[in-house]
Design a protein around this nucleic acid. Structure first.
Length: 362
RNA sequence: GGUGCGGUAGCCAAGUGGUAAGGCCGAGCUCUGCAAAAGCUCUAUUCGGCGGUUCGAUUCCGCCCCGCACCUCCA
């Protein structure tokens, strides 16, 4: 039975299929920015993607799925954090990468097959930016930065259905940048000594030294590890715009090929009915919950308790319920363990997952 | 303002054009017993509101109300 999954671009439930002649399903999942501990909202997305990855392997075969998830290890936030601690950027990002891995392991998430870093792919990103400049989709600004020219890509906005004039209305961040149009976004950011410290690389031809913009990293890394066209691209809903919209623009203009055949976005985890934030005091990390005595698998269970494309309200009560439910499930498993592996019930669980990743039913 | 996702029992949460899965909590019972655990049973005449289509709608259509999210670097 094929896997059917909602596609954010067409807004329809469609079957997942590999497109490459080798039969390997190419799966790209936007990863975390490593400057602080990931919170459980982040992990909801990663746990959902873990279920999806396991399901894909069941469908196509363990060696017929290539799962890539990046690590954003250079951007405004990582640089700011390094500056605050007055330590090298690499030290900060390594620390939080290790923490992220430990949390993923605790939550029983499989490691992706490739976990590329932005700093490890500067060359690829620069190549891509130069390609876009050659083709007229990008331009150098007065300060040496490079911007993507949205007007050069007529299909811009197809994923998020946003119109350019709407962007302009709400855009208030038009500061010292030297863009042609306010909605153009940065591909390469020129070095600013007082903000960036020693973080800089040689830029694209004709541009200043500096660092890549956020969006280009996923375009460059997915191209390197999965090719010009990938079968499935996933992430949280918040990435739909502008991140994924921009990825499409960059990749399709540079490669002249469809970027992703299928898009999937998981909804946010809410805490106490609203989105998580440090200022609201409703910000949980896995460590916070373990300190309260909850088990990692109960957290995983709680994160999967709602439909992935529906906002899920997380509370300590729900975690408590997860812990109890899990105990009951374990008791059942213990009572019928040996013979149950091939049981019909298991097939029902898989069927529910194949139907648009319906984890609650499963 | 624009764009999405939702509103189902005390709480969390599936689902279907033919009369509401499951989990948590709670209650009762059984068996142990100091207690706990475990097992069994019960817990929405009703699916945000109002119209419409229909033999029949929670499920389809329209309008309205409410919540949440995104709208330049947040999974």
């Amino acid at each position: 039975m094929p896997i059917r999954l909602h596609d954010s671009l067409t807004r329809q439930i469609r079957e997942l299929t590999p497109s490459h002649p080798d039969g390997v399903f190419r799966f790209y999942n936007c990863g975390p920015t490593v400057y602080a501990p990931a919170h459980i909202g982040n992990f909801r997305t990663f746990v959902i993607n873990d279920v999806l990855r396991r399901l894909l392997e069941l469908e196509f075969g363990p060696d017929k799925v290539k799962h890539v998830r990046n690590l954003t290890d250079v951007d405004d936030r990582t640089i700011a954090q390094a500056k605050r601690e007055t330590r090298p950027l690499a030290e900060i990002t390594q620390k939080w990468t290790d923490k992220f891995h430990a949390d993923c392991d605790a939550l029983n998430c499989l490691r992706p097959h490739v976990e590329p870093t932005a700093t490890g792919h500067i060359r690829e990103q620069v190549d891509m930016i130069e390609c876009l400049m050659r083709k007229g989709n990008a331009y150098r600004a007065a300060d040496g930065s490079v911007y993507f020219k949205i007007a050069s890509f007529p299909d811009y906005g197809a994923l998020s259905r946003i119109k350019e004039r709407e962007l302009k209305v709400t855009n208030s961040a038009f500061d010292s940048d030297h863009k042609d149009a306010v909605s153009d976004f940065a591909l390469w950011k020129a070095w600013k000594p007082d903000e960036d410290g020693d973080v800089k690389w040689p830029g694209p031809d004709d541009a200043s030294a500096g660092r890549p913009g956020w969006h280009i990293e996923c375009s460059a890394m997915s191209k390197k590890h999965l090719g010009e066209t990938i079968d499935l691209h996933t992430g949280g809903v918040d990435l739909l715009f502008p991140h994924h919209e921009n990825e499409i623009a960059q990749s399709e203009c540079c490669n002249g090929a469809t970027f992703a055949r299928h898009w999937y976005h998981s909804e946010h985890l809410l805490v106490d009915g609203t989105t998580m934030s440090k200022s609201k005091g409703n910000y949980y990390t896995l460590g916070d919950l373990l300190e309260k005595g909850y088990s990692p698998m109960a957290v995983r269970y709680a994160l999967l308790a709602g439909h992935p494309r529906k906002q899920l309200n997380f509370t300590l009560d729900s975690l408590h319920a997860a812990e109890s439910a899990l105990a009951t499930l374990r008791a059942h498993r213990a009572s019928l363990a040996p013979a149950a592996a091939a049981h019909d019930a298991f097939a029902l669980v898989i069927a529910a997952l194949q139907d648009d990743l319906n984890t609650p039913a499963a």
